[in-house]
Amino acid sequence: MKFAIQVNEGPYQHQATDSAYQFTKAALEAGHEIMRVFFYHDGVNNGTNLTTPPQDDRNIVKRWSELGKQHDLDLVVCVAAAQRRGIVDEGEMQRNGKDAQNIAEGFRISGLGQLVEAGIQSDRLVVFGD
């Protein structure tokens, strides 16, 4: 079965992204396809490479990057939400005249259409939020 995942909250503040991660991992282990993980609202903060969590805690951003790499996941950060919250990739940096980028490995910034498309193309959309 083809799942799409929507993550509405950032790392550490809410458990939403942890639950989404565990669900995604379990779905992959069960042989399902995860066609996209879409990060919206403060969820875009899951895609910054500037976090430095303490050593004895999980590294939420890195964990997504690694799972993404392992399973070739499409980790999409919403551009409109990202612009508001300062998540920037190469293209956004140039377009908006910023002097840095911070998108984490394996994530890409794209439009809200990607969420709608995920709703159309997936068999199930599962939303994790506050």
């Binding site: 799942f3 669900f23 379990a26 282990e29 069960a30 399902h32």
Partner: peptide, 8 residues
């Protein structure tokens, strides 16, 4: 979590 997935 596996059962969460199968319920979904």
């Amino acid at each position: 979590y596996a059962k969460f997935v199968s319920l979904a």
